[in-house]
Amino acid sequence: MPLPGFTITSIDDVPAMAVTSLITVKTIKEPTPDDPSVIQWYRMAPNATAGEDLHHESEHLYILEGEFHDGDRAWPAGSRISGKRGSVHYPSSKLGCTFLAFFPNGLGKAD
């Protein structure tokens, strides 16, 4: 049992959803009325591409394994990438990668 005020989730217990045939996501933490933040785990297979990704809120990525490409350059495991609200990148991975995405203010909505 976790300490009072804490929630514990195992990534193994979270169902994966297909974003594309080569990209899967697991939402580890959903937003709540008291805390809009979202945490997601992504796996990109080799040669995966997601197209344009416009950020309606800020996003922080931490590359766990492999190599993540943002449309400009490749980032190896251990890299942290932060995108401001309104920024755009083009996620892809030639080699494949796994990363965590943290949205402190939630996912936002298209205007």
Rank of each mutant, 00 (worst) to 15 (best):
G83Q: 10
T7R: 14
V14Q: 07
L100N: 09
I28D: 02
T32K: 12
S79L: 03
C97W: 02
S58Q: 15
L95W: 00
I81K: 03
T24Q: 13
S58V: 09
F99W: 10
E59P: 00
S82I: 03
T9S: 06
G96N: 04
A45R: 14
D72L: 09
H60V: 15
G78I: 06
E52V: 14
S93P: 01
V38R: 00
A50S: 13
P31E: 13
H89M: 06
I39H: 03
M44K: 00
G66Y: 00
A48F: 03
V38N: 03
T32I: 12
G108L: 04
V14M: 08
A50G: 14
R85P: 01
T98V: 15
L95D: 11
P2Q: 13
M44N: 04
V38K: 00
A45M: 11
P104D: 10
G5L: 03
R80Q: 13
G66P: 04
A110N: 15
P76S: 09
A110Q: 15
S93D: 03
S82N: 05
K109E: 15
I28A: 09
L64W: 09
I8S: 11
L3E: 14
L3P: 00
G106W: 08
G66K: 07
P46N: 07
S79A: 12
A110Y: 15
A77N: 08
S37R: 12
G66M: 05
H55V: 05
K84R: 14
E52Y: 03
A48S: 14
T7F: 03
D35A: 07
F103K: 13
F68A: 05
A50Q: 08
V19C: 06
G86V: 08
T24V: 11
T7K: 15
W75K: 00
P2H: 11
P104K: 02
S37L: 05
S21W: 01
K94Q: 04
V19P: 01
Y90H: 14
H56Q: 13
K29W: 11
I63W: 02
Y42A: 06
D70T: 05
S87M: 06
V19H: 05
F99V: 05
S93G: 02
P104R: 04
L64G: 02
I28E: 02
R85Q: 15
A16W: 00
L95Q: 14
D111Y: 09
V14W: 04
I23L: 08
K94Y: 00
D53G: 02
I39N: 07
P36E: 08
P76F: 01
Q40I: 06
P91I: 02
H56V: 06
D53M: 10
T9W: 01
M44P: 04
N105S: 13
P33W: 10
T49C: 08
A16V: 04
E57C: 09
